[in-house]
Design a protein around this nucleic acid. Structure first.
Lengths: 219, 219
DNA sequence: GTATGATTGAAACAAGCGTTTGAGCACAGG
DNA sequence: CCTGTGCTCAAACGCTTGTTTCAATCATAC
């Protein structure tokens, strides 16, 4: 009856984990909605947690690949010089926004999920999850350091955290904001654009006066 | 034997909700650690969800009061002119950072919790929670609009969302970042300073080229 | 057609959940 | 002294959880 049980489970799980969170979603919720048997989750994936891992990987892998692709292009264009800051930021931020066509009523489920992985899973799971980002983080950290030579490593790391925070939070709450304040309604594409400009400006902010690493001001 | 059962429950619940999340923390986890009986939660608070509400309110109320206090001072200083952007941003961001003396190994538990409220509770609860922020949001939105007259309302709203995202995410992951990369280690006070500069710069970013300030929203 | 291995189904499993119960304790005011 | 109130306790409530079991069914190769 089912086209493909595995995929149906993945789709429903992605949506429900995104909407309600991982611990708050039961396997019976998922399997009922997907029209499959409870046991099939453990048959196909092994456990609830393994299902979560697959849900995440399915979406995250293409996103991170796309990020690196875009960064490659930006760096190629820059040649030996420093890459353009805004382009680097855009290479990082845009793939998740494009990963789902619709910024639906509930938002891109799996990205809401990503935003709260760290709080809903145990330590080991979290570690293997973060590992998926390691390569991306290293590449972008290096690129940003070249684009912002007056920042020390610590500054770049913290500002990347700020940027990721804006992104994750926007994915989570954005749809709520859109539905609450009609004035704020916007295309996801416009929101992405706003976010890129915001993050690029923040990245280029002057370094704290009191704790200089080497240089004084930003752009 | 217990100094005050109520307070012990609140303290332990705050920490555990922060570390593991609301659904993943059982009342028995809390009461065992606190050295009190399971039934005392329902006796003192009525339900698990009511306990969460009180945990949040206990910390959030003073934080939001302090925010408004600081904003009052900033606006008084500005007189009839526009308030200083960085001061407004600082008034918003600093109280949570000061709400707990120590940026411990696990981070300020209750702020990690705040960051994911929306995903771990039902719709009604979320509504009453967001209400606590309404006054603060309105005041700060107004102040930012005066400090950034070239942005339209939608821009200000989105950029506030970006700012809150940076803050929440930093509270959550900051401690992780500090422990992973020794190079990034910093005082919470320094991190706050970085965040303020980052957010102020982001707020002041140019408006998107394609979307003029006065035009109606979507396309 | 029959055999084989992959998949599904209904049912049960033990464990844990939030909540309720009602007896018991401590200690005030009369 | 007794009574009333506030609180704690062990035990049990009914229910849901993730996981397992094992027979039934399916698709495919011989």
């Amino acid at each position: 009856m089912a086209i493909d049980t595995r995929d149906r489970i993945l789709d429903v799980a992605e949506r429900m984990f995104g909407e309600r969170g991982f611990p708050a979603t039961s396997l019976r919720d998922i399997t009922t909605e997907a029209g499959v048997n409870v046991a099939s989750v453990n048959y196909h994936f092994g456990s609830k947690e393994a299902l979560l891992a697959e849900v995440l990987e399915r979406r995250l892998k293409p996103i991170n690949e796309r990020r690196l692709e875009l960064l490659d292009a930006v760096e190629a264009r820059a040649g030996d010089g420093p890459p353009e800051l805004e382009a680097v930021v855009r290479a990082f931020l845009s793939p998740p926004f494009h990963s789902q066509r619709v910024w639906g009523e509930k938002g891109p489920g799996f990205l809401r999920l990503v935003g709260r992985i760290h709080s809903e899973t145990n330590e080991e799971f979290r570690a293997t999850f973060v590992k998926q980002f390691d390569a991306v983080f290293q590449r972008f950290t290096a690129a940003l350091q070249r684009a912002l030579p007056n920042l020390d490593d610590a500054d770049v790391s913290w500002r990347m955290l700020f940027m990721v925070g804006s992104m994750a939070f926007t994915m989570s709450w954005g749809p709520t904001l859109v539905s609450r304040e009609s004035g704020a309604a916007r295309d996801p594409e416009d929101v992405l654009e706003s976010l890129v400009l915001y993050a690029a400006a923040g990245m280029a902010a002057p370094v704290p006066a009191g704790v200089p690493a080497m240089a004084a001001t930003g752009r």
